[in-house]
Design a binder for these strands. Sequence first.
DNA 1: CTACAAGTTCAAGTTAACTTGAAGTCAAGC
DNA 2: GCTTGACTTCAAGTTAACTTGAACTTGTAG
Lengths: 147, 147
Amino acid sequence: MDSVLTISDVSRRSGVASSALRFYEERGLITSERAGSGHRRYPRSALRRIAFIVFAQRIGLTLEEIGAELAKLPADHIPTRRDWARLSGEWTKRIDQRIAELQRLRAGLTQCIGCGCLSIDRCRLANPADRAGRTGPGPRYWLGLVR
Amino acid sequence: MDSVLTISDVSRRSGVASSALRFYEERGLITSERAGSGHRRYPRSALRRIAFIVFAQRIGLTLEEIGAELAKLPADHIPTRRDWARLSGEWTKRIDQRIAELQRLRAGLTQCIGCGCLSIDRCRLANPADRAGRTGPGPRYWLGLVR
DNA sequence: CTACAAGTTCAAGTTAACTTGAAGTCAAGC
DNA sequence: GCTTGACTTCAAGTTAACTTGAACTTGTAG
């Protein structure tokens, strides 16, 4: 129940691997103090920040987006309940959009495939015009562009 | 309105890049005949198969999973409406699970972050024990393991 | 004092789903 | 006969989010 935590403390408590924590730090998502030895020391508040990151990932945000969100937190004090709550506004919308899409897909699954209309020409769900176009390399699907 | 299609025909009609179509073929998701010149020729039925692949991706299936689904289709004839419908059973469940998770996350967003319980120790949503554990390299998040 | 665990940095590897580029083939139009 | 465009294969590059490994230092227990 110490007030400062080592990286393995944080890893164990958060379920996030030490290597991932270093990676998050490199990306500017979290910060740490250093002990005289050069070892990282985390304040208790880091746990909440990390929980937030994990939470946001499950919603489907990229680390970059999460970083942008975290940047909105006040820098002059440890974020309060209110500060965290302010971040969540945009997210609710995003979740709702994804839920709506899944519900459309679910309907298409029984209706389109079931009724045989799963044709590129006729079906809105499978229609290329309804999908995001994007050029360049990289994983199109994972970027949520084809999702 | 020809009965056989070139790769660029299929690409244009489906919105899937030619390179992706070749990639799908390499992975065994689709097949093609060859013209004397060595060029690919697709039957009309390929369009539906490709639409199915795109559809499945939006739901969140990997190409490997999609391949496994497609393998269940009869090999001796062009799949009928019924054949396609049979594949969809498992999917509905999967969509529902993801929708349910998003709804839980949505609730957590207002309740947990809003009320300040977003603490690794107390909050179920952020609790490591609730998340899938996995060892080895690769993108944990994108694999749906942290989602 | 000596193990040995735990921490550090930095470069390189891993995964899925493609894309890009190089080098070559083939048919059609002028 | 020559160019142009569409096609082919094959190897290598791209992206996100990490992990792994090597080489090294520090902290702690016996």
